[in-house]
């Protein structure tokens, strides 16, 4: 088996003779290899289809000559198209004209939202902002404590009027306050105490959970966020499309954060999510520590997906 797309394409074109355009069979073989590479990288099937039909159009035009290696030409085209879709330039955070700027985090269970709250808080504080973290996850056991610890490590205050699910509640473990109210009060508190950015941590939820989706929509309606960031695990597979669409339709988001990019997953989800929602990836989360966080780089991501 060949390790990279580039190797596979080189093998595909090995028998290429003569000059002129790539034959239809050559183009088909090319597309097969690209499709395979993208699926192995967890790019979702519908997005793979869209993508390969664009590549097909361009591949048809490739001239075979002695001088140019067609495999390299194809890889270059694929790379250009990938970078194009992932966004040429990283979009910056939008700040409110009248502070506080409100940033709401949303995503599946365990995606990395609470950790990201700390990372964003720390990053913004270092740029001279005065962020406040708001504990609106009252559902996952000790999510509030977790955010408090994260806030302490980040040197950022945490607004946490409710304890959520925590020890000492006996078997039911479901007594909790109202996450929407906490979010609303958090923004009011920030305005009052002159915090210029509010970061709202929310509970993880599934796309199919209508009730919890509505709760997220209610948090959004109550706080009118300037940014809603969809946090998605770089290891996610084909479900990226269904889930991203569910969050897009159920809550609506303005940017994407890819988490756990310090792993060895190829991260095709980046392409899937951008491909179906049109929202840009803004940040990459690259570790458990709060400083392991950076702006998203489309070109690095393209190379990573292609395993180059």
């Amino acid at each position: 088996m060949f390790a990279t797309l580039s190797d596979r394409l080189t093998a595909t074109f090995k028998s290429l003779r003569g000059k002129g355009r790539l034959s239809e069979a050559d183009v088909d073989a090319t597309i097969r290899e690209i499709r395979r590479a993208l699926l192995d990288a967890d790019v979702a099937l519908p997005v793979v289809r869209q993508f390969t039909s664009r590549i097909r159009e361009r591949a048809v035009g490739i001239e075979v000559s002695q001088a140019l290696n067609p495999a390299q030409q194809v890889v270059k085209i694929v790379n250009e198209e990938l970078v194009g879709i992932l966004g040429g330039e990283t979009r910056r955070l939008r700040f409110a004209k009248n502070p506080p700027t409100v940033i709401m985090l949303a995503g599946l269970q365990g995606a990395g939202k609470t950790t990201l709250a700390g990372k964003l808080g720390r990053w913004l504080r270092e740029q001279g902002h005065t962020p406040l973290l708001v504990a609106s996850d009252l559902q996952r056991p000790n999510a509030v404590t977790q955010l408090e610890v994260v806030g302490q490590r980040a040197g950022v205050p945490v607004f946490a009027p409710e304890r959520g699910v925590s020890e000492g509640q006996g078997v039911s473990g479901t007594s909790q306050g109202d996450p929407v109210q906490v979010a609303r009060d958090g923004v009011a508190f920030a305005r009052d105490k002159h915090h210029d950015v509010v970061i709202i941590d929310t509970a993880g939820r599934l796309g199919v959970d209508g009730e919890l989706m509505q709760q997220a929509a209610d948090i959004k309606a109550a706080t009118s966020p300037d940014e809603v960031l969809f946090v998605v695990d770089a290891m996610i597979g084909q479900d990226a499309v269904t889930t991203a669409m569910a969050f897009m339709e159920g809550v609506g988001f303005t940017g994407v954060v890819l988490s756990k990019l310090d792993g060895d997953a190829r991260g095709g989800a980046a392409l899937s999510v951008v491909g179906v929602t049109g929202q840009p990836v803004m940040f990459a989360s690259t570790g458990e520590k709060l400083e392991e966080f950076e702006l998203f780089h489309p070109d690095r991501m393209a190379s990573r997906i292609l395993d180059m």
């Binding site: 404590t145 925590s166 473990g173």
Partner: peptide, 18 residues
């Protein structure tokens, strides 16, 4: 012993199920 509040989270589960 590493992740923020991981032991608290487990202890809450312990409490829940007795």
């Amino acid at each position: 012993t590493f992740r923020a509040a991981a032991a608290d989270q487990l202890a809450t589960w312990g409490d829940r199920v007795g």
